[in-house]
Simulated assay, not measured.
Amino acid sequence: MKYSLINIFKTFNLKDDIKFNKKNKKLFSGVNTLDKSNINEISFFHNLKYLNDLKKTNAGACFINKKYSKFVPSTCMPIYTNNPYKYFIYTLNFFNPKRISTGKISQNSIVSKNAKLGKNVEIQDGVIIKDGVKIKENSIISSNTVIGQDVTISSNVFIDENCSIFNCNIGKNTKIQSGVSIGSSGFGFAIDELQNINMSHLGKVLIGKDVVIGNNSAIARGSLDDTIISDNVRIDNLVHISHNVKIGKNTIIAGQSGIAGSTTIGKNVIMGGQVGISGHLKIGNNVKIAAKSGIIKNIKNNSTVGGYPAVNIKDWHRATIKLYLNTRNEIRKK
């Protein structure tokens, strides 16, 4: 099915963020990259690395900052915006909306008589839902997932296959991808000369709304307090979040990162891949952490850090360059 730009953008609830020729009634069938688009597709340009692709694109329209308009082919209609990637994603989602619940409960699932399911909840094959679970309307629980006792799941939540969900509350519009484990006991024990004494964990995992948790990530329940994942957090694949960790709104955590117990992460933090953060630390708001960094002390608001142990990103770059030059000079002496 094809749509005009006006009909597409009506769904975005826009103000004056986009400028384009509204007299052009051309219809579009989808989106694509600059180099693969055809005349019926919409693309975007936001990185000078792709300037040659822009110059040669066959796209029928392109989200672009106006300062690059001279590079747009005459066959491509420019859509001016200061955030091309953002509006490209909106458009992509328009053509590829998220799946809607069928409302069917599989005969090959096990649902406790004491569980409460809202309207239009979909339960797929092999799902196990235990006593006291509450699932609100339009949520989807995919195959072979286990929902433990007294878990609360809000509306429009999607939980993918083979997940283990215990001791938690999940906010609306949250997406949990395959293989995720939430609410198991954390890595807490006392050490003496004879044995390691495990600690029973009594807390929960509290997950806000509009959160995304990537494949095969693990989030431990709190020991006495709760583990908290705030609204609009994005957690990539293979991330480990330990007991009592608190993550602020809009934080982004890239793959293979780990956060040790009782650490607090502020709002709007961006963590690169394979970052490790020690326990009982405070990471401020708006902090950026370079990939593969190790954090062993508190980080102030608005800092950008990298390396191990992590320091100001400029200091880390200087130290790296100095080490390289010293090593090169030593090799040349030999």
Rank of each mutant, 00 (worst) to 15 (best):
S142N: 14
K136R: 11
T174R: 09
I141W: 01
G183L: 02
N169M: 11
S139R: 07
I170M: 07
N162A: 12
N173K: 06
S185L: 10
N169Q: 14
E137C: 04
S139Y: 05
K134F: 14
D150I: 10
V157G: 05
I182Q: 02
G171L: 07
I159L: 01
G179M: 04
I159K: 01
K136A: 10
V151R: 03
T145M: 03
E137K: 09
T152P: 11
S155H: 10
G148F: 04
G186V: 06
I153T: 03
V180Y: 02
I141S: 05
T145E: 03
Q177V: 03
I170W: 06
S184A: 14
C168S: 08
E161M: 14
K134M: 13
N156L: 05
D160L: 09
I141V: 07
E161F: 14
N138F: 02
D150Q: 11
E161I: 15
V157Q: 04
K134G: 11
S154K: 12
F166E: 13
Q149H: 15
I141F: 00
S139M: 04
C163R: 00
Q149F: 14
S155R: 11
K134R: 14
S178A: 11
F158C: 12
D150C: 08
N162R: 14
G183V: 01
G171Y: 10
N167D: 13
S185E: 12
S143P: 13
S139W: 02
S143W: 07
S139V: 05
I141H: 02
S185A: 12
I159M: 01
S181D: 13
N162G: 13
K136S: 11
I170D: 09
T145Q: 04
I170F: 07
S143I: 11
V151K: 01
S154E: 15
I176P: 00
I147W: 09
F166K: 13
I165Y: 00
I147L: 05
E161T: 15
I140Q: 02
V157Y: 03
G171W: 10
I165F: 00
I159Y: 01
Q177N: 10
N162F: 14
T152S: 15
T145S: 07
T174V: 08
I135H: 10
D150T: 11
V146G: 08
S139T: 07
G148I: 06
I182M: 02
G186N: 04
V180E: 02
G171T: 09
V157M: 04
D160Y: 13
S178W: 01
Q149P: 09
F158L: 14
G171R: 11
I141D: 06
N162P: 14
N169H: 13
N138T: 00
K134V: 15
S154R: 10
G171P: 06
F158N: 13
V157C: 06
S154N: 15
S142A: 12
